[in-house]
Computed example of a mutant assay.
Amino acid sequence: MNGELESNFFLLVRSDKAKAFQLVFDAYWESLYKQAYKKIHSSDLAQDLVQDVFICLWDKIDLLDAEKSVLAYLYAILRNKILKIYEKDEVRLRYAINVTAKEVACDNYSQNTLLEKELKKIIDQEIELMPPRMKAIYILKKEDELSIKEIADNLSLSEQTIKNQLQSAYNRLRNRVKDYDSSLALLTILITKYL
């Protein structure tokens, strides 16, 4: 929005607050959305953030300083909202790490237990989809707890082949969990319990 439109905005605020708001909304919504999406990579969340920015504008529209840029004000609100999301995500991740690291006893209805069950189900489904040799090697390693050498001897394969097959299996499982729902950071942390 150029200087003339900024001036018009502040003049309109005095006479028709809704029209002034619509002028700014039409001019800035798309650029704010693009900025939010670039930072958080979620269309729905970016739209929610921009909506929150405009709610803040509406709540403070009468208090804005005509000497300052409306666009700069909107970007500042958006930046603060994005930073709050990053802070919340960091707190959640630290909490998830602490919960899994301490191996806290949980009752059957706790969120952690439910997430672990969901994770186990996802892993079991992916194991069933593995090629037969990879699946057999993975099961011998994880369920029968055989060493790489023991598996190689049992299957008459080289130890390097066993290592390669296990690495491929681990990669498949990690990708499956990540593809399932990347927003569940706890699942990604818990996967190490099963790999």
Rank of each mutant, 00 (worst) to 15 (best):
N2C: 08
N2F: 04
E4A: 14
L5V: 15
F10A: 03
V13A: 01
D16Y: 01
K17A: 03
K19W: 06
D26C: 13
E30H: 12
E30L: 08
L32D: 00
Y33G: 05
Y37M: 01
Y37Q: 04
A46D: 08
D52V: 09
D52S: 14
F54D: 04
F54Y: 05
W58R: 02
D62Q: 07
L64C: 01
Y73C: 05
L74G: 04
A76G: 12
I77A: 00
K81Y: 02
K84L: 14
E87T: 09
D89V: 04
E90F: 11
R92M: 13
L93T: 10
L93N: 08
Y95L: 12
A96P: 09
A96R: 03
I97N: 13
N98R: 13
V99Y: 10
V104I: 08
D107T: 08
N108R: 04
Y109L: 12
S110K: 07
S110T: 05
T113Q: 09
E118I: 06
L119A: 06
K120D: 12
K121P: 11
K121W: 07
I122E: 08
I123Q: 08
D124Q: 14
M130Q: 04
M130S: 06
P132Q: 07
M134F: 08
Y138L: 12
Y138P: 06
E145N: 15
S147Y: 00
S156A: 12
S158I: 04
I162H: 01
N164F: 12
L166Q: 03
N171F: 14
R172D: 11
R176C: 15
L184P: 03
I189F: 02
T192K: 14
K193C: 08
K193W: 07
K193A: 03
L195Y: 15
